[in-house]
């Protein structure tokens, strides 16, 4: 079983991020009044998740020193899983979360500012949730431009637009197991997606679902082809069917909802012995 569900799931064995307790106000911790920090790496969010670790991991790779690489990875992830990490969810789960958490806000995407310098006013794709949103002014350096409060209906409409446009939806943990953010991401603009795809840095965990092609139903129409942000999907040209690499699939479901004939099914990762625990 998924270690997060085991520890933070409800008593019925449900998925941990659908457990309302993990959105509860009592879990929300006001960030400690630390001194004003110096340097982009002083705050893990300021220059992207695991920023310092990735810089060192790249060095270790160039040095061809697997022991060094493992050390950086293990240390950074141990810290991340206690404090700040993310996991892919499906759009249906995303909607359920929008029914659970409150308040809901739209805010700037820190990643695309960091990686592409996108102006914050053009970049309000992330969502913040929960009591922290009343206190956004405590970390204005991260969420430049403030927050825009939304009703649950507005938030769902916004989430659907993002899903249609092709962004992967994730939950973001701020002090495990408190879920305080919902990202709508893409490769390579999203630091979490990028670092996972290019460096296998498991700050971003795969989702509980995995997408499988029904080869009888697939017509080879290619509607799904540009949807995958994880390089897991291509067309088998000779058989004219979509092909999904199940080991690489993150289970976001972007390909499944683009299919006009329902030829892509989302399966429960843990029901497949070959894929269970491939987070």
């Amino acid at each position: 079983m998924c270690w997060l569900c085991e520890k933070y799931g409800d008593s019925e064995g449900g998925r941990w991020y659908l457990n309302p307790e993990n959105y509860a106000r009592r879990l929300y911790k006001v960030r400690k009044a630390t001194e004003e920090a110096s340097g982009a790496d002083a705050d893990p969010q300021s220059a992207g998740m695991g920023a310092g670790a990735i810089a060192e991991l790249i060095k270790a790779r160039i040095a061809e020193d697997p022991e060094w690489e493992k050390e950086v990875r293990d240390e950074a992830l141990e810290h991340a899983y206690q404090t700040h990490f993310a996991q892919v969810v499906t759009v249906d789960e995303f909607m359920q979360i929008l029914d659970t958490a409150y308040p809901l806000v739209k805010m700037t995407c820190g990643c695309r500012r960091v990686q592409r310098g996108m102006p914050d006013e053009e970049n309000f794709t992330c969502m913040g949730i929960g009591p922290g949103m009343y206190k956004w002014e405590r970390w204005p350096e991260t969420y430049r431009g403030g927050v825009e409060f939304m009703t649950p209906e507005e938030a769902k409409e916004w989430a659907l637009i993002n899903h249609k446009q092709g962004r992967v939806q994730t939950i973001d943990v701020f002090g495990t197991p408190y879920i305080g953010g919902l990202c709508q991401c893409e490769y390579p603009g999203c630091v979490a997606v990028r670092n996972r795809v290019d460096y296998d840095f498991k700050f971003l965990l795969k989702g509980h679902s995995v997408a499988k092609v029904d080869r009888d139903k697939c017509t080879g129409c290619k509607s799904c082809l540009n949807r995958c942000q994880f390089k897991a999907l291509n067309l088998e040209v000779y058989t004219n069917k979509a092909y999904i690499d199940l080991d690489t699939c993150f289970g976001c479901g972007l390909c499944a909802t683009a299919c006009p004939v329902d030829a892509i099914n989302l399966l429960d990762r843990e029901s497949l012995p070959g894929l269970a625990n491939n987070w």
Binding site: G39, D43, S46, Q115, P140
Partner: peptide, 18 residues
């Protein structure tokens, strides 16, 4: 074309935007 650069704040201020 390969998103080599990142751009982060050099100092984290409290209670104001960088």
């Amino acid at each position: 074309p390969t998103v080599v650069f990142v751009c982060g704040p050099t100092k984290i201020w409290k209670f104001r935007e960088t």
